[in-house]
Write a protein that binds this DNA or RNA. Structure first.
Lengths: 341, 341
DNA sequence: CATGATGTCTGCATCGTTGCAGAGCCCTCA
DNA sequence: TGAGGGCTCTGCAACGATGCAGACATCATG
């Protein structure tokens, strides 16, 4: 199973190992005659360089790791795709790992026996590891954080402006004339920082419109999955005064909410308008199609990869908070008029 | 940036490098006193083993690569999740790469300078590389193929029985009393082997029901994406005698088709019933929810990983065609009665 | 002709780890 | 007492590649 090594090729071509290496890499000048002879031997043996050995010698692997909670959450899958593409453009490959949203697994990744040393850098989308834990554990591998707002000067961090994104979504609903706008996805505990930022934006929108927030309309969910969106919506529909619009903290929640509305016989957007966040492809094809806040995923991936590579090459400045643009995309789930009350 | 090595720890604890290694790995017996001293040095320096060096020495990396066409296609994302999980259960990590459905990229992966040598094995879901090409290029790395039917004895291959899956889907529609059942997703050219198997199952179902296939109702699509499903459906609706049911070769096509139907004002399933294939999570929450053929993805992942590891460990038998079960899941998109013509 | 510059090619050391063979030491038992 | 065995611990070589310094031959130059 083990392939031929430089030594084998060298023996066959009757030259030194070093010369074969030079031919393979084109490093040093080699005469045409020798080069040809070596090339023949390379071909005959079908030599492939052992990248592990090369990596050991050079102290780098050309691999970065992307760690996300769940790969089958469309947002992360789409982001992963962009990251892989951005890394490839810079000559790096990406190893994708998922933590299943499990804090222990996230910590394990930073632990003593982790495979982190195999990578030149880490792109991390943490769910429950705190910045302090990260700082305590991650010494030697450059890290860039994605999405979650646990930045405190220790690590570069790439994300959209969550507050203004949520504000834009909510304002859109208020401008449609909706007056009971619910919010699905708050997470009022330590690791729910992103969710809290979005709640903050939701409140700001009301404040600016001179409206009160009905606290009953803010529903928490431990995760951002379809099922929880549907359940939260059902609870909202059971209120004495149900909402006429919902801002969901991601598209999956929104799709779940729409599902619950449809099942309950409510029309979207006529009875209840729905806005999501993430702009996953699915939202373009759902019925009704989904109005959403679209983060620029390509830009997130590129900035994250670029920042990580700078850090790897040692050309990085101080860790920065990088804010990537987002925009509102209006589709059917909010396109109609509000039904008269 | 470079961390402490065994040598550094050894120097500090005043023992040999080998003893430190023994403590780290627990290989050989070490007296309690020495062990304690070494442990202190390990902790003080925060030693982490250099996995690249370990890999070089041991000739294995503990990494396998999973190569799929597109990671943001839900089926592949869900499969990737299962593969990562199955591999982790066996102590392996998975590097996910995508080829963007690009044959050249698939070939590049097998080429001289590929990173394939970094992996103990390859899980490949090829789109356009043929078995012959694979055989010619992939010598030393164990390979297991997923999904596509290019098996010819050279490589182990894990997939569902595509013919019977398609037959089951089509039969379900026929048994509902539908009589003009369309098929979306045929690919009548060299690299469309899987699609052709499904077309074959579609025909078999008609044959067994004693019905003719109207060739006009079989629509080809170069890819399996939502947009193409919608476009294909529009073409079918434009026929003088449009279908009253559609079997789509994957769920994305089906969701696109449903979208086109809804937009055209047709009711699903009343006017047109729709069946997909893959059982992606999205289909459970779409409106209407999607009847589909569900491959056992967990089983596919486990069998593929197990087979690959056997091959890596050299305990494999002859390459086998492994068939994984599937089942029909009936949801709203076919649950109703056909509308009277 | 001596000198140095240039162009090829080579051998040795090294990356950080583990496999292997064996050195000491202490204890047991004939 | 001394041979044998078990327990710890160590040093050397090796995995397969590249960095570096230098050997050797050739050639131009003063």
């Amino acid at each position: 199973m083990a392939g031929p090594t430089l030594r084998d090729v060298a023996k066959r071509a009757n030259v030194s190992i070093r010369t074969v290496s030079n031919v393979v890499n084109g490093y040093a000048p080699v005469s045409d005659e020798l080069r040809a002879r070596v090339q023949v031997a390379l071909d005959e043996l079908d030599y492939r360089p052992n990248l592990i050995a090369r990596n050991l010698k050079q102290g780098r692997t050309g691999m970065i790791a992307l760690v996300v909670p769940e790969l089958d959450v469309p947002y992360f899958a789409e982001l992963a795709r962009e990251v892989i593409r951005a890394a490839r453009a810079q000559g790096y490959v990406v190893m994708v790992d998922q933590t299943d949203g499990d804090g222990d697994r996230e910590r394990e990744l930073l632990g003593r026996d982790s495979r982190a040393t195999m990578f030149d850098g880490l792109l991390l989308s943490p769910l429950s590891v705190s910045a302090d834990e990260l700082r305590a554990r991650a010494h030697r591998v450059p890290i860039v954080l994605l999405g979650e707002h646990i930045f405190n000067g220790s690590f570069p961090h790439v994300a959209i402006d969550n507050v203004s994104a949520a504000r834009d979504a909510t304002t859109h609903l208020l401008e449609l004339g909706r007056r009971r706008v619910a919010a699905i996805g708050d997470q009022p505990y330590a690791t729910g920082e992103t969710a809290q930022l979005r709640t903050s934006g939701y409140r700001q929108a009301h404040l600016r419109a001179g409206l009160e927030v009905d606290e009953e309309l803010i529903v928490s969910t431990p995760h951002f999955h379809r099922r929880l969106g549907a359940e939260a919506m059902e609870r909202l529909l059971a209120l004495p005064e149900p909402p006429d619009a919902v801002f969901c903290y991601n598209d999956l929640l929104a799709l779940g909410a729409i599902r619950a509305l449809t099942r309950a016989g409510r029309r979207v957007p006529d009875d209840v308008a729905v806005v999501g966040l993430d702009d996953i492809e699915e939202g373009q094809y759902s019925t009704p199609s989904l109005t959403t806040i679209a983060p620029d995923k390509g830009e997130i991936a590129r900035r994250a990869v670029d920042t990580l590579l700078e850090s790897i090459r040692g050309t990085a400045g101080a860790p920065a908070e990088i804010v990537v643009p987002h925009r509102l995309i209006v589709r059917e789930s909010t396109a109609g008029e509000a039904a008269p009350h």
